[in-house]
């Protein structure tokens, strides 16, 4: 589904991704761990098409097509979803209105029929149960005045409604209480299917207890420096990042 080869990317003239390669097949869940400042969020932003991230070398193919050639909205319609590490507050834009506009824009681009407000409401009712997100949040402006945990839940709620094929979750587990963490995990597990793949960026083993990954990677200094199965996460939990990634010490946190 996703094939990243030797990806180099820079932000504001500074090279952040330095030859990153990763292959994700449909049905797989990949966890990406790594020290602060290693480039994990940068990878998420490059994959979803944020401006200001300049790809200087390498390639990303998604379902066999050049992902990097697409506008962010086209990537979304093609099934790419990024749950933001820091979801953005957008005062004045109603959460439900926004989500319906997003879903219908995606459907329109894919040549599918748009949902009318009744159909959309029905879909929201189904998904809301899973995420246990309160009705009141849906009627507020996007993320505006949401607590940290509510923002993260709202990201997963959006994911549940938009039903992407490739979901990149950037530290969606950070700042969640234990109940919220379970709900987020449940939201992910419900969407797991042979057609979907997940890239879960996380610092903690805890999430991986609930969403068991097929692969765990360590991203340090702009590269994947080690890959393994779920036991790698446990090893990291115990020993930290020192000694990981063959020879180099991963002092990328600066």
């Amino acid at each position: 589904m996703l094939k990243i080869e030797n990806l180099h990317a820079r932000v504001e003239g500074k090279e952040i991704l330095k030859g990153l390669s990763l292959t994700v097949n449909a049905g797989e869940v990949h966890a990406i761990m790594g020290p602060n400042g290693a480039g994990k969020s940068t990878l998420g932003h490059v994959l979803s098409g944020r401006e200001g991230y300049e790809v200087t070398a390498g390639s990303v193919s998604y379902h066999g097509n050049d992902l990097l050639a697409l506008e962010p909205e086209a990537r979304a319609a093609a099934g790419v979803f990024l749950a933001f590490q820091y979801p953005v507050e957008i005062p004045g834009v109603n959460n439900t209105y926004f989500l319906r506009a997003a879903l219908n824009a995606q459907r329109k681009r894919r040549g599918e029929k748009e949902l009318d407000s009744m159909q959309f409401l029905k879909l929201v009712r189904e998904k809301i149960k899973v995420m246990q997100i309160s009705d009141e949040l849906l009627h507020r402006a996007v993320n505006t005045g949401f607590s940290g945990g509510e923002k993260k839940r709202n990201e997963i709620f959006q994911m549940a409604v938009l039903e992407p094929q490739l979901a990149i979750l950037d530290e969606t587990d950070s700042g969640l209480d234990i109940d919220a963490l379970k709900q987020v995990a449940q939201g992910v597990n419900l969407l797991r299917s042979p057609q979907r793949a997940f890239l879960m960026i996380t610092h903690y083993q805890r999430l991986l207890d609930y969403v068991v990954p097929d692969f765990v990677h360590v991203l340090a200094d702009g590269r994947i420096v080690e890959s393994g199965d779920k036991s790698l996460a446990l090893k990291l939990e115990e020993h930290g990042y020192s000694g990981i990634g063959a020879s180099q010490p991963t002092g990328a946190a600066a």
Binding site: S48, G49, R50, E51, G52, E71, P72, E73, R75, A76, A77, F81, L82, F84, P87, V88, I90, P91, G92, V93, F98, L99, A101, A102, L103, A105, Q106, R109, A141, V142, Q158, L162
Partner: peptide, 29 residues
Amino acid sequence: DERSLFYLRSRGIPQADARALLTAAFCRA
């Protein structure tokens, strides 16, 4: 706000619509 614009686009809302949505929101109050 560039971050808001990207957030909307990353959910599938075309750039022109995202700009209009944010501008209308700016005026709404």
